[in-house]
Amino acid sequence: MGLDFTVVPEHLDVILLGCLWTIFIAVAAALVSFFGGIIFAVIALYAPWIIRQPFRLIEWVFMGTPLLLQLFLIYFGLVQIGIDLPAFVAGIIGLGLHFAVYNSELIQTAILSVDKGQMEAARTVGLSRGQALRKVVIPQAVRDVIPPIGNNMIALLKDSALVSVIGVSELTLSAQRAIGATYRPFEFYLVAAAFYYVINLCMEWVQRRIERRIAISR
């Protein structure tokens, strides 16, 4: 029995809807991971010891355990203590924090490698340390890590398939549903793969545009 893609158009609406969910979850989680990464980095570098410790625990949990387990914990585990999140929210938080921890590592290194003269120059015109970080140091650090953060975001997009296990009808789960109706796994998994590939291309394009725009200001 060969490949037969004629069954695909009939189920394309489901696949496209799944595709939109994937894009939505990936973009939302990317934003969480980006700003979360900055916040984690600043806490790791500058917060007092007492505040740093709980964040080190969070960091350890999100770096040292499988993302799948983290999603189960957030979706099924939190219900037990009365926090009942919709599946897609749990997915965004899980993916977002998981990658925030990785982004934080990158941003910490970048903050430390911003020339010391930048902080000094900002302080000499009267900025506080916090203002100098916000206006001068962090914007430069973030510019320096756009390429590796972009790589993390592509990994995030691929890992977003994991949120299918907590019942979010994103691209992978939608493909599985279409397969359930047609018994055509090869065709629909290939279609899903093609969509992931296209979304990836779009992300790379956005990243290149950002990199070009900031090239002049480094």
Binding site: D115, G117, Q118, E120, A121, A122, V136, P139, Q140, R143, I214, S217, R218
Partner: peptide
């Protein structure tokens, strides 16, 4: 400063 320390961004 000797090395200007302008904000490059």
């Amino acid at each position: 400063f000797q090395h200007f320390n302008l904000f490059p961004h």
